[in-house]
Design a protein around this nucleic acid. Structure first.
Lengths: 124, 124
DNA sequence: ATCCTTGCAAATTGTTTGCATTTAC
DNA sequence: GTAAATGCAAACAATTTGCAAGGAT
């Protein structure tokens, strides 16, 4: 039944404004201080995920959340500055073949590319 | 200089026998009890990774390690029984195009597919 | 009125670290 | 002999949980 509280509205609005996945703590630090407890953020994000409003993805040891959108994207993640560059998803075609072989019912997938962005290549 | 100790030999041998990625704790529970401390496992896995002997990959909130092999693989992970099914990697071709656009220097990538294996589809 | 959500603090989980001792080279 | 590896316990970071109080439906 997902009740819409002051906090959840705040959180959802903030997520909507972001094009990139955000961790719970990133959101926590950006919201007006005292407006929402960190554990409430975790609980709400989880509720949103169950409700299909947001997608969760794990990068390294952190969970990131992003408003669910029609187009499925992936990210190039810079190992130096942690910048995330969005790229289009092109894996469905070959995935279909591979998963059929194993009679696997796909629910979702994550593709993350690690490396160095243009700026950090020269430095690192 | 990566010294080969009794523990590291044990660990490396165990990893070699496994075709699937293993978490530190999975290894810990499988090795003869008392043969190796959990923190030593973490430290050794990290050393192996730096030395290029193993690959580390994060699935969910867990780190998994696997002996590095020539062929790069990905996994279909069952959301119910956590079985991991190996599939071939076919992402390089389109990745090349996408990363060139952004002048991104790729170091590695992870693709993980979540869903339900044949056995668990009927149940879940 | 009921059941869901919140805040807070405490618990859990996965992983890392400091330090004194042991071991490979 | 020396620098690196180990075990243990304690520290950490991210996330989860229990519970009493507050709020949406």
């Amino acid at each position: 039944m997902l009740k819409m509280t002051k906090q959840r509205t705040l959180l959802l609005d903030y997520l909507k404004k972001s094009t990139k996945p955000l961790s719970a703590e990133m959101v926590y630090l950006k919201l007006p201080q005292g407006s929402m407890n960190l554990s409430t953020i975790y609980r709400s994000l989880e509720a949103f995920e169950v409700a299909g409003l947001v997608d969760k993805t794990n990068l390294g040891n952190l969970a990131y959340y992003k408003i669910r959108s029609h187009e499925h994207k992936h990210y190039l993640v810079c190992k130096n500055c942690h910048k995330m560059i969005e790229i289009d998803c092109h894996v469905d075609s070959f995935l279909e073949v591979e998963t059929k072989k194993h009679h696997f019912k796909v629910e979702s997938h994550d593709l993350t590319v690690y490396g160095y962005c243009e700026k950090c290549q020269t430095l690192a």
